[in-house]
Design a protein around this nucleic acid. Structure first.
Length: 244
DNA sequence: GCGACAG
DNA sequence: ATCTTGTCGC
């Protein structure tokens, strides 16, 4: 029995144009909750989500990996296969990933706790990146940890692990801290942390440090990335069963 | 108008 | 994101 032939469809009413997608962001942005500190680092569970694409076949595979926040041991995993629901447009990344990411979170056997996304939350042209979007749709605490500064500016943090500097957005409201460039390992390029939903920036950075005892990227991201790549390879055009 | 631009 | 071999280093 192959139960993974089901692919997550593009939801009815999903934005079809960039203009519609931006309108959705403008409408949902007001629902982001910014006055909660979020779960304390090192307690409960932390879940990484990531996706891999095969644009040729219009396929997106999402993976979620739940870790014990104290030990970073894997507690649960899930994958989901979907249809690519939007082209890649800077600033509209969420519309490409969210349907399948929602499905993979649904497929988890336990609550995810804090969700760590690849990409941004508030550090976004309209202050509503993937992590914030996912948080508003699920009500979960979310943060974004990105590998690149996107269009934002920052000064190089100190060389030691734990050093950080503000990630700054341009003039619309004057230089505004939308996230932080955070050094997670001595002497390596920083990562770019921003708040998604129901977490403070300080707490988001503390979580990121707790998740990077050895590598530049959080263990959540590393695990989810490797899982969705494996699952994509096992997802043949005829429909093989990924890890489930 | 042109270039840059999370993944 | 993805296309791709070997190679330098801990």
């Amino acid at each position: 029995m192959n139960t993974s032939l089901n692919t997550v469809p593009i939801p009815a009413g999903w934005p079809a144009t960039e203009e519609q997608a931006r309108a959705v962001q403008d409408e949902l942005r007001g629902r982001v909750v910014l006055d909660e500190p979020g779960p304390p680092p090192g307690t409960g569970r932390v879940t990484g989500v990531d996706v891999a694409y095969d644009d040729e076949r219009d396929v997106v595979v999402a993976a979620a990996v739940v870790l014990d926040a104290a030990t970073l041991a894997v507690v649960a995993e899930a994958t989901a296969v979907g249809q690519v629901s939007f082209p890649y447009v800077p600033g509209l990344l969420a519309f490409r990933e969210i349907p399948t990411v929602l499905a993979v979170l649904d497929a988890l056997p336990c609550p995810p706790g804090l969700v760590v996304c690849d990409g941004y939350g508030l550090a976004h042209p309209r202050r509503f990146g993937l992590a914030s979007h996912l948080g508003v749709l699920t009500g979960l605490s979310t943060i974004g940890v990105a590998k690149n500064p996107f269009t934002f500016s920052y000064e190089e943090p100190g060389a030691r692990r734990g050093s950080a500097s503000p990630l700054l957005a341009g003039e619309p409201t004057g230089p505004e801290e939308v996230g932080r460039a955070l050094r997670t390992q001595d002497g390596v390029k920083p990562v770019f942390v921003s708040v998604g939903h129901r977490v403070s920036l300080d707490n988001a950075c503390a979580h990121t440090l707790a998740l990077t005892p050895k590598y530049r990227l959080p263990e959540t991201t590393r695990s989810a990335d490797s899982l969705c790549r494996r699952a994509l390879k096992e997802t043949t055009p005829s429909g093989a069963s990924p890890v489930d």
